[in-house]
Computed example of a mutant assay.
Amino acid sequence: MAALSAVALLVTGCAGRPADPQPTPEPTSTVRLGTVARAEVGARLTVTATVDRVITGTAFVVRDVDFTDGTLLVLSTGKATAEPPQLVTVVGTVIDFSYRDLSDRYQLGPSGAYRDFEGGPALAAEDVTVWD
């Protein structure tokens, strides 16, 4: 009986001791920043992605999970022959998109197609490779 009392005392004594305080984890972002979100305006960038839609012969949208909103506007001074859902590799420079400032240079056509991109990043293409 004395042994049983000693065991009971040991078990309750151990169970009553509070656990050491644990440090709180550092807060981490749950949003994954995409390639373009990390790139500064003026940075050279190479992107391989799927053509989502063609707006004009010099402007098209690519889609990839690494982009902040899933899509990226690509502008080219030469005609791009890419069509959805082709894969393209684009080498260019990250710019801030402004329809008013860029419409003449890139022959953008009507402004309505560009509303979602206004003020955001775009890629001014220097080279576009279309993969079959």
Rank of each mutant, 00 (worst) to 15 (best):
L4H: 12
S5E: 10
S5W: 13
A8C: 08
A8Y: 12
A8G: 10
L9W: 13
L10I: 10
V11M: 10
V11D: 07
G13S: 12
C14R: 14
G16H: 11
R17L: 15
R17G: 00
A19D: 12
A19P: 07
D20E: 12
T24V: 14
T24N: 04
T24D: 10
L33M: 12
L33D: 06
T35H: 01
T35Y: 01
T35G: 10
R38C: 06
R38D: 06
E40F: 06
V41S: 07
G42I: 02
G42P: 04
R44E: 08
R44A: 13
L45C: 03
L45D: 02
T46L: 06
V47H: 09
T48K: 11
V51M: 08
V51A: 09
V51N: 03
R53Q: 10
V54L: 08
A59V: 04
A59W: 08
F60Y: 14
V61L: 12
V62N: 06
V62I: 14
R63E: 13
D64Y: 00
D64N: 13
D66P: 00
F67H: 08
T68H: 11
T68K: 02
T71E: 04
T71R: 13
L72S: 06
L72H: 05
S76Y: 07
G78D: 11
G78R: 14
A80K: 02
T81N: 14
A82M: 04
E83L: 10
P84G: 06
P85C: 03
L87W: 03
T89Y: 10
V91F: 13
V91G: 09
V91A: 13
G92E: 07
V94L: 07
V94P: 04
I95P: 03
D96N: 02
F97L: 01
F97R: 05
F97A: 01
S98Q: 07
